[in-house]
């Protein structure tokens, strides 16, 4: 009896040691992960002089002048609104058109549909860098459509549709036909059937795709840097980058600018945290 107790005791102790190690490891890693954000935060309240003398020191006084200046000089509000318009419209259009297309491809097995679906899936292998030069040539030199939000949205629709059609296609295949047949017998047209019966069933897939597309489009840099030329059209990543190029060594100002660009994303994350995490987990399983 005593013997077994000793063994249990030993087991418990070794379990304790390993769990201390586990927590230690996780929290040290946590600190390393957060360290860059901590630096941005504290230094955004300091002057250039304070930062050079000690970039790690905590804030000595609440000085908001960096934020005011950064907000003005990077035309924060314009850039934020541009990003908001481009991202919102793009993700909604991608969701609507892609779900309709995927539904059509699943329900009508015509040769052209099979061909187009295959073409979309294969096109996901093309790196963006392989088409950016001709893309700029066609929409710039030939059609003279560049430097315009709407053409950027149009391009996001083009680049985003493949993945979305593919994901919707996978889900719609599993929807039983009977539901739609009943609606059609009741006199619904195809279009009505889609909007009344099918689209509501696609809610969670749509949410997953919207989240993935928001993270992509909101943060995208290369495509907008090629398409949007004038200052008034810049999105948030663009204006942050050019702002950095202009005030290279004014660290306090730069950190304030970075913090201002991070805040909207963190707010979005806090509001949608549950959906974002489960969306990415589901997105990967599909």
């Amino acid at each position: 009896m005593k013997y077994t107790m000793e063994i249990n005791d030993m087991k418990a102790r070794s379990k304790n040691v390993s769990s201390y190690l586990k927590y230690g490891f996780l929290y040290i890693l946590l600190l390393i992960y957060l360290f860059p954000f901590y630096l941005v935060f504290i230094n955004s309240f300091k002057s250039r002089k304070e930062i050079i003398s000690n970039p790690l020191g905590f804030i000595s006084k609440m000085n908001l002048s960096n934020f005011v200046n950064a907000f003005k000089r990077m035309s924060y509000l314009d850039a934020f609104i541009n990003s908001l318009i481009i991202t919102t419209i793009s993700v909604l259009i991608i969701a609507l058109f892609s779900s309709m297309t995927a539904y059509f491809f699943v329900r009508y097995k015509w040769k052209i549909n099979k061909f187009l679906f295959l073409l979309m899936v294969t096109s996901m292998l093309i790196p963006f860098q392989s088409i950016m030069i001709p893309l700029v040539r066609i929409y710039g030199a030939t059609l003279k459509l560049l430097d315009n939000k709407w053409i950027l949205i149009y391009m996001y629709m083009g680049f985003g549709s493949s993945l979305s059609v593919f994901v919707y296609h996978g889900f719609i295949k599993s929807i039983p036909l009977e539901l739609e047949e009943a609606a059609m017998i009741d006199g619904c047209t195809r279009v009505q059937t889609f909007f009344r019966i099918v689209l509501p069933l696609l809610r969670s897939t749509t949410l997953t795709l919207i989240i993935l597309n928001v993270l992509w489009i909101w943060n995208d840099f290369l495509l907008p840097s090629l398409v949007l030329i004038s200052k008034v059209n810049r999105t948030l990543p663009l204006s942050t980058f050019y702002f950095h190029g202009t005030y290279t060594s004014d660290y306090g100002l730069l950190m304030a600018g970075l913090l201002l660009t991070i805040i909207p994303v963190i707010v979005f994350f806090l509001l949608m945290q549950k959906h974002i995490i489960s969306g990415i987990m589901q997105g990967a399983i599909k």
Binding site: F97, S98, M100, T101, M120, I126, G158, S161, S162, V165
Partner: peptide, 13 residues
């Protein structure tokens, strides 16, 4: 159903 997606996809990609 597929017109807009097809046209935009073909012209952009």
């Amino acid at each position: 159903f597929a017109g807009p997606t097809t046209f935009i996809f073909l012209s952009v990609v």
